[in-house]
Simulated scan of single mutants.
Amino acid sequence: MSHTAHIPSHRKPRRSASKVSLRAGVAGGVLSTIALAGAAAPANAAQPVTETIEMPTLTGNLATTAAATVQATKTVAADLQLQAAQDAAASSAAKDAKKAKDDAEQKAAEAKAKAEAAAKAKAAAAERASRSAERTTLSAASTATSTFKASNATGSAAAIVNFALAQVGKAYVSGATGSSAYDCSGLVQAAYRQVGVDLPRVSQDQSATGTQVSLSNLQPGDILYWGSSGSAYHVAIYVGGGNFVGAQNPSTGVVERSLDWDQPTGAVRVL
């Protein structure tokens, strides 16, 4: 290449005079504006800036809706309060009803118990009255016939028979020997004690005391026995006329009965 050849320069191309002038004018105008604003700023800084914000006004529809909501809330609250009161009243009524039922059942049970007790007492009184009437009847019958029977007995035998007849209607109590109650051997022992004869206490021994006699040859005052001699389970006194007096059992007490009512096994004569 020739040393005279053109080498491009790295410098920026020069601006035209018109563009430079235009830019200078613009810059000058901007600076002038800034200067004017800066001069005016101190004067404006002393005055406060106020701004008014307007709140939106509720329209008619919104006001109506709000009022309805308030009313609905009050209605719901009232309903809840009423329901709570009704529930409380129902619970109280249920408790009162249960208490009343329990009281009624208790009173009914007490009344039933009293009625049952009264019925039992009435039945017992009727039974006692019946026994008393039976004993009175038997006693009257014995009294009516005692003269005849006693007339057939003499001496000690008559005393034994009369004593036995006088005990008719009294109670039977196991182990009793008088004077308000007897068992079978206790009555026989007490009757013979009236004439000074001391018999053994139990029926087994009484059935083996004295002389054995036939049932077809009985005399007033003889001791009748049921079972075997020496092991008898029951004894009584023959009073004549085909009858005997004995303390039979707790249901009948001391009674007068016919030999046909309960035929004895044998008899002994002590006198």
Results as ranks from 00 to 15, higher is better:
2 S>R: 02
5 A>C: 01
9 S>H: 05
11 R>W: 09
13 P>M: 13
13 P>S: 14
17 A>N: 02
17 A>C: 02
18 S>R: 09
19 K>H: 07
23 R>T: 10
24 A>W: 10
26 V>C: 07
30 V>S: 14
31 L>I: 15
31 L>W: 10
35 A>R: 02
36 L>R: 09
38 G>A: 15
39 A>M: 14
41 A>T: 15
43 A>E: 03
44 N>Q: 12
47 Q>S: 13
50 T>I: 08
53 I>D: 00
53 I>Y: 04
60 G>I: 12
61 N>T: 08
64 T>M: 02
66 A>F: 14
67 A>L: 13
67 A>S: 15
69 T>I: 13
69 T>E: 15
71 Q>D: 14
79 D>E: 09
80 L>V: 06
85 A>V: 05
89 A>N: 09
89 A>Y: 06
94 A>R: 05
99 K>M: 06
100 A>L: 09
103 D>V: 13
103 D>G: 06
103 D>C: 04
103 D>M: 10
107 K>G: 00
108 A>I: 01
111 A>S: 09
111 A>W: 05
114 K>P: 00
115 A>P: 00
117 A>L: 06
119 A>W: 07
120 K>V: 14
121 A>K: 13
124 A>L: 14
125 A>W: 11
128 R>S: 13
132 S>N: 09
132 S>P: 01
133 A>W: 07
134 E>P: 00
136 T>P: 00
140 A>C: 00
144 A>K: 06
145 T>K: 12
147 T>V: 12
150 A>F: 01
151 S>N: 12
160 I>T: 14
162 N>A: 13
162 N>K: 15
164 A>N: 07
170 K>P: 01
172 Y>F: 12
173 V>M: 07
174 S>T: 10
174 S>G: 04
176 A>S: 06
176 A>C: 04
178 G>P: 00
181 A>H: 02
182 Y>E: 06
189 Q>N: 01
196 G>A: 10
197 V>F: 00
201 R>V: 03
204 Q>V: 01
204 Q>A: 15
207 S>E: 10
208 A>G: 10
208 A>D: 15
208 A>S: 15
209 T>K: 11
215 L>Q: 03
220 P>A: 01
221 G>T: 08
229 S>V: 15
230 G>S: 06
238 Y>T: 04
241 G>F: 10
243 N>D: 14
244 F>Q: 07
245 V>Q: 02
246 G>E: 05
250 P>I: 00
253 G>T: 01
254 V>G: 06
257 R>P: 00
260 D>S: 14
260 D>Q: 06
263 Q>K: 11
263 Q>E: 04
265 T>D: 12
267 A>C: 01
270 V>A: 08
270 V>C: 12
